[in-house]
Write a protein that binds this DNA or RNA. Structure first.
Lengths: 180, 180
DNA sequence: CTATTTAGTTCCCTCATTGAACTCAATGCC
DNA sequence: GGCATTGAGTTCAATGAGGGAACTAAATAG
């Protein structure tokens, strides 16, 4: 059957994954970022079937993540590149890559090194807090229910749980204050 | 046909994506992070088929990203949670979520708000340089060929191109110095 | 005028995803 | 005790997405 679409989920992650949530797409975007811009280069580098690459590229173009430009008419030939939305995804791809480096590094060593041109240093991507700049770790993130109440698939149970938990926290606080 | 395995690619991103590179997996991990830990909660929240959830969870447990613990024997019941590798993936998931917020936010608003407990502020994940701490943007990243030379699928063409480009840069520099 | 290159398209086959029904053990409830 | 419900899966048939390979189209190289 057709894979369930995430587009209707009230969740930014799911809506993002609806487009980029498959094995090939992030690899394609990485290759485009790294400078491969031709159909056959992508086929050769990734080993993806031509068939599927066509479909993925079309989907990415339709969703504004990739831009297709004709680099020659007669014969019509296209090259591909990242759109602003695609380029904005690169940091997240680097964060995933850094995770892969930590937990699934190839035995032979990494095939590439990233240099941050702003400071000139080799780097690994780390994920930071937009407020304080400190590194984000799973244990130090609390989640509150947001404005989008969400009775849609993707966050139904979750939204309810978050509210329950928030209320439980409140109760605890009130009780704690009462008895302390 | 079975999806091509990325496990043999000499690329940390691909090897990571071999496990987490499908639509559901990151959503499952997000839900585990957010506190859903029971099979039926995941089914209800995501709308994933029970069948598939079983397979995905097994795969994630086998790959050390999710931990399964029996919270009751007789009848045997399991709860699921993130392993250290899984928890370490959360920041990258938040970076992807932030991208989704910027480019595919649901009209109703976000269903949740993230608080960084270290500083107490609501935040968006941003991806930073491990060397200078500055925000990473696609345009300010240069890529050099790394120690893993890579004649394997996944980076074959890429490694060659990176070397060519590095050499071309050198040539240019030498010529530039010669004629300047 | 034949071979090669580039960018796809077409075809078929297989397997992954889906939805729905079914299992099994325990617990709640009357 | 008997009956319905819950939790955590397993089994099953149908279908469509991913995969391989061959084919097409338009130009250029030799």
């Amino acid at each position: 059957m057709q894979r369930t679409s995430f587009a209707r989920m009230q969740c930014s992650l799911a809506r993002g994954l609806d487009v980029i949530g498959d094995g090939w797409t992030l690899l394609i975007l990485r290759d485009l970022f790294l400078g491969l811009d031709r159909f056959d280069d992508l086929v050769a580098n990734l080993g993806i079937s031509r068939n599927l690459l066509t479909r993925r590229l079309t989907l990415l173009v339709d969703n504004g993540i990739v831009e297709r430009r004709a680099y020659t008419r007669r014969p019509l030939r296209h090259a591909y590149g990242l759109s602003p939305a695609g380029a904005d995804l690169v940091p997240a791809i680097l964060a995933l890559t850094a995770w892969g480096e930590r937990w699934a590094r190839p035995a032979e060593g990494s095939p590439m090194i990233f240099i941050h041109e702003t400071c000139g240093q080799p780097f690994e991507a780390k994920v930071c807090c937009s407020a304080c700049g400190g590194r984000i770790e799973a244990g130090a993130v609390r989640v509150l229910p947001g404005p989008g109440g969400a009775a849609k698939p993707g966050t139904m149970v979750l939204a309810r749980r978050l509210h329950e938990r928030a209320e439980a926290d409140n109760d605890k606080k009130i009780k704690g204050e009462g008895t302390a």
